[in-house]
Protein backbone atom coordinates (compact mmCIF):
# COMPACT_ATOMS: atom_id res chain seq x y z
CA UNK A 1 0.00 0.00 0.00
CA UNK A 2 1.05 3.61 -0.54
CA UNK A 3 0.37 6.89 1.17
CA UNK A 4 -0.03 10.20 -0.60
CA UNK A 5 1.76 13.36 0.48
CA UNK A 6 0.36 16.63 -0.85
CA UNK A 7 2.85 19.47 -0.81
CA UNK A 8 2.06 23.15 -1.18
CA UNK A 9 3.71 26.51 -1.88
CA UNK A 10 7.49 26.46 -1.39
CA UNK A 11 7.46 22.82 -0.21
CA UNK A 12 6.89 21.92 -3.86
CA UNK A 13 10.27 23.27 -4.91
CA UNK A 14 12.43 20.27 -5.77
CA UNK A 15 9.78 17.82 -4.53
CA UNK A 16 6.73 18.29 -6.75
CA UNK A 17 3.05 18.62 -5.91
CA UNK A 18 2.40 15.06 -4.80
CA UNK A 19 4.73 12.40 -3.49
CA UNK A 20 3.69 8.76 -3.20
CA UNK A 21 5.38 6.68 -0.51
CA UNK A 22 5.25 3.03 0.38
CA UNK A 23 3.28 2.43 3.54
CA UNK A 24 5.29 1.03 6.42
CA UNK A 25 3.38 -0.12 9.52
CA UNK A 26 3.80 2.34 12.36
CA UNK A 27 4.91 5.22 10.18
CA UNK A 28 4.07 8.68 11.44
CA UNK A 29 4.01 12.13 9.91
CA UNK A 30 7.46 12.63 11.43
CA UNK A 31 8.75 9.69 9.36
CA UNK A 32 7.34 11.29 6.25
CA UNK A 33 8.79 14.76 6.74
CA UNK A 34 12.17 13.27 7.62
CA UNK A 35 12.25 11.42 4.33
CA UNK A 36 11.27 14.60 2.46
CA UNK A 37 13.95 16.71 4.13
CA UNK A 38 11.38 18.98 5.79
CA UNK A 39 11.86 20.03 9.41
CA UNK A 40 9.08 20.63 11.91
CA UNK A 41 9.80 24.36 12.39
CA UNK A 42 9.29 24.90 8.65
CA UNK A 43 5.72 23.58 8.85
CA UNK A 44 2.75 25.86 9.57
CA UNK A 45 -0.05 23.38 8.98
CA UNK A 46 -0.10 19.61 8.87
CA UNK A 47 -3.17 17.57 8.02
CA UNK A 48 -3.16 13.80 8.43
CA UNK A 49 -6.07 11.90 6.90
CA UNK A 50 -8.27 15.00 7.09
CA UNK A 51 -7.42 15.88 10.70
CA UNK A 52 -5.44 18.97 11.65
CA UNK A 53 -3.97 20.18 14.93
CA UNK A 54 -0.82 21.57 16.43
CA UNK A 55 2.14 20.45 14.33
CA UNK A 56 3.99 18.89 17.27
CA UNK A 57 0.95 16.73 17.99
CA UNK A 58 0.22 15.84 14.37
CA UNK A 59 3.79 14.64 13.81
CA UNK A 60 3.15 11.77 16.25
CA UNK A 61 -0.02 10.60 14.52
CA UNK A 62 0.19 7.19 12.88
CA UNK A 63 -0.79 7.26 9.22
CA UNK A 64 -3.36 4.85 7.83
CA UNK A 65 -2.67 2.49 4.98
CA UNK A 66 -3.55 4.44 1.82
CA UNK A 67 -3.77 7.56 3.98
CA UNK A 68 -2.67 11.04 3.07
CA UNK A 69 -0.87 14.07 4.43
CA UNK A 70 -1.13 17.72 3.44
CA UNK A 71 1.85 19.86 4.45
CA UNK A 72 2.00 23.66 4.31
CA UNK A 73 4.76 26.19 5.00
CA UNK A 74 3.71 29.57 6.49
CA UNK A 75 1.06 31.10 4.24
CA UNK A 76 -1.65 33.68 4.81
CA UNK A 77 -3.83 36.19 3.08
CA UNK A 78 -7.39 37.28 3.39
Amino acid sequence: MAITVKLFATFRVGRGKIVEMDYVPGMTAQTVIDSLGITAPEIAALIVDGVDGKVENMLKVAIKEDGYLAIFPPVAGG
Binding site: A9, T10, V75, A76, G77
Partner: peptide, 15 residues
Protein backbone atom coordinates in the same frame (compact mmCIF):
# COMPACT_ATOMS: atom_id res chain seq x y z
CA UNK B 1 8.42 37.89 3.87
CA UNK B 2 7.75 34.63 2.01
CA UNK B 3 4.29 33.24 1.33
CA UNK B 4 2.50 36.51 0.55
CA UNK B 5 5.15 38.12 -1.69
CA UNK B 6 5.67 34.87 -3.61
CA UNK B 7 2.10 33.68 -4.08
CA UNK B 8 -0.18 36.58 -3.10
CA UNK B 9 -3.33 36.02 -1.07
CA UNK B 10 -4.30 33.32 -3.58
CA UNK B 11 -2.00 30.99 -1.67
CA UNK B 12 -4.95 30.43 0.67
CA UNK B 13 -6.96 28.40 -1.85
CA UNK B 14 -5.25 25.10 -1.07
CA UNK B 15 -4.87 25.43 2.69
Amino acid sequence: GGGLPTYGTAVLVNI
